[in-house]
Amino acid sequence: MTLVPPPAAAAPGRTAVGVRATARITATVGGTATTLPVLDGDGPFELRRLRSHGSEARVCIVGAMSAPLGGDRLRIEATAQQGAALHITSAAATLALRGPDSEHATYDVHLTAGEHAQLHWLPKPLICAGGSDLRQTWTVDLAPTARLVLREEQILGRTGESPGHVATRLTVRRGGRTLLDQQAEYGPGAPGWDGPAVLAGHRAAGQLLIVDPVFEETPLEVQLLGGSPEDGQAVLTPLAGPAALVTAVAPDGLRLRHLLDTAQATFRRTVPGASAIREGR
């Protein structure tokens, strides 16, 4: 199903414009369990099938090469068809690096979930190394009865390093209507990004989004998370539609992960049937 040769065939030579790669995953219901009729890795994305959990199919993205580098054009498309349950994670953090020139990289994630499908996108964090420039998007299309858990974390700079530049956009449509549309831009050149309104010295930012039709009847209550300011801060808040979003900032990736794990545990405790929300590691 790949439009370009798989990594094993032609070493996906980095041209002057970088790597172009699209990985595809499709999950469908076969009998009582979810099967994966499409599991096509490409370029830096090697896809491994993990032992399934109940009726849920699990996929791990393994980095086959260093990516994204400036100039790369990367894309992952994952679909959970009607009734399927698909859980996607990654083996390691994604490291964005500067390419041969100042050209930016793109990394687009397209997630689709059909009626009564469930899709979990829980990769390891993105680390934006000094000098890197990445534009990342998540475009999510959900059927009205679909459920989604999505986590994204950005860490600005490796330890002791100045941050790279990253611009993101997360767009979630449910039944064709936009439920959430959110851009963020951090790092050199983004106006005010490190000031008191945006990150104020924090070097890690992340979100956890849960969409579940059950919230139509019983929306989650607002919750303030995080203890002392040096541990980072987070808030769980219901969206205008049946979804809840955790927004978190922390001094570093470790403390960010702790905040998001706490939030995820809160979901598991408070949302009926949310026991399926598991750690992504």
């Binding site: 956009r169 767009t171 936009t178 549309d181 959110q182 851009q183 963020a184 831009e185 005010g192 008191p196 309104a197 945006v198 990150l199 104020a200 924090h202 930012a205 607002v222 303030l224 801060q233 987070a234 808030v235 808040t237 927004t247 978190a248 900032v249």
Partner: peptide, 22 residues
């Protein structure tokens, strides 16, 4: 379409607005 409209966010404005409301 309306996707053309900016959607820029500021995590601390969001987090502290909800804290302040309490």
């Amino acid at each position: 379409g309306f996707d053309a409209l900016p959607a820029a966010s500021a995590p601390l404005l969001d987090i502290t607005a909800q804290q302040h409301a309490a």
